[in-house]
């Protein structure tokens, strides 16, 4: 921990970065985000199995971006990112939301995080994304800490659920999602936590014409959740933040993961894994399969 704190303090003191976006401990089994501009505050930084948030979401926030510009120069933002959060940063770079030279990625060798605050860290409580994680070492970073450790073993309940849904006929599947979406209260927490939902004006906020009814009744909810899933397909990196944020426990990442599987099968593309390959949508080829639109 001291390594991380010292490193972050130096970055700020040497004015290499304008701010460090990281985690601070709240209770024994909970952390929360902190945006640090004062070098003295770096003593609060932590990194552990309770660092659930995907901090990449802050990289596109106007308030945070405005910290980068001082009177006489522009500085980078440093961000503490798990290897999976790095996927989101990669996706943001690829979609031209942030420049690689504007972020300083501090990452870790990661062996997983808990599914929710307050749990003990073990196989039963491993976050769904960690169960299927293939990148325990970050693909891109400017600084890396921590030693490699074994991730606890766990069964992939979310994949089982997807397979179960696959077995249903389309009407039954539709019913399942309809009953889940019915619960939606349109709090937009799912959108707020998503690093890739960075649109300045989301389509749901557009009133002329109104594409998506703002009411949280069946029709309004269905169009919102489906539009969001489609807009994220091929872009969602699978960080699972929307799932975690949803107060109504709607299994949003089931859809996103299913979409990602489809995209991987059809286009051999996984979002946020490489700075060299272009984005899926940006590279749409007429020869590509159009099955996904059906």
């Amino acid at each position: 921990m001291d390594e991380l704190r010292n490193y972050a303090r130096e970055l700020l003191e040497k004015e290499e970065v304008a701010a460090v976006i990281g985690y601070q401990q709240v209770t024994e089994k909970r952390t929360k985000p902190i945006v640090i501009t004062d070098p003295a505050e770096t003593s609060r930084l932590v990194f552990n199995e309770y660092c659930l948030n995907n901090l990449a979401v802050y990289l596109t926030k106007a308030r945070i971006r405005s910290l980068m510009r001082t009177k006489d120069k522009t500085m980078k933002l440093a961000i503490v990112a798990k290897p999976c959060d790095v996927h989101s940063i990669v996706a943001l770079i690829q979609e031209n939301q942030i420049h690689r030279n504007d972020v300083h990625i501090i990452s870790f060798n990661c062996h997983g995080v808990v599914k929710d605050f307050g749990c003990d860290f073990n196989g039963d409580n491993l976050a769904a994304k960690c169960i299927k994680c293939e990148t325990h070492k970050p693909l891109y970073f400017d600084k890396i800490f921590g030693e490699e450790k074994q991730t606890p073993k766990a069964g992939d309940a979310s994949l089982e659920k997807i397979n179960e849904l696959e077995k249903l006929n389309s009407k039954e599947r539709f019913e399942f999602f309809k009953s889940e979406f019915d619960k939606c209260i349109k709090c937009y927490a799912c959108r707020a936590v998503c690093p890739l939902c960075y649109c300045q004006r989301c389509i749901t906020d557009k009133a002329i014409p109104r594409w998506i009814e703002s009411s949280s009744h069946q029709r309004g909810n269905f169009s919102w959740n489906i539009v969001r899933a489609f807009h994220l397909s091929g872009r969602c990196t699978g960080c699972g933040e929307c799932d975690r944020a949803c107060p109504m426990d709607i299994p949003l990442s089931l859809i996103n993961r299913r979409m990602a599987m489809e995209v991987k099968d059809l286009f051999s593309f996984v979002s946020g894994r490489s700075l060299e390959t272009p984005t899926l949508v940006g590279n749409f080829d007429k020869k590509d399969s159009d099955e996904i639109f059906m």
Binding site: K32, P33, I34, V35, V57, R63, I64, I185, K186, C187, Y188, A189, R191, A192, V193, A245, P247
Partner: peptide
């Protein structure tokens, strides 16, 4: 300001 930097402007808090 400190709070404003971290809060994500959703309405989870109001709706629950």
């Amino acid at each position: 300001e400190g709070i404003g930097n971290v809060c994500l402007s959703c309405a989870q808090c109001a709706f629950v």
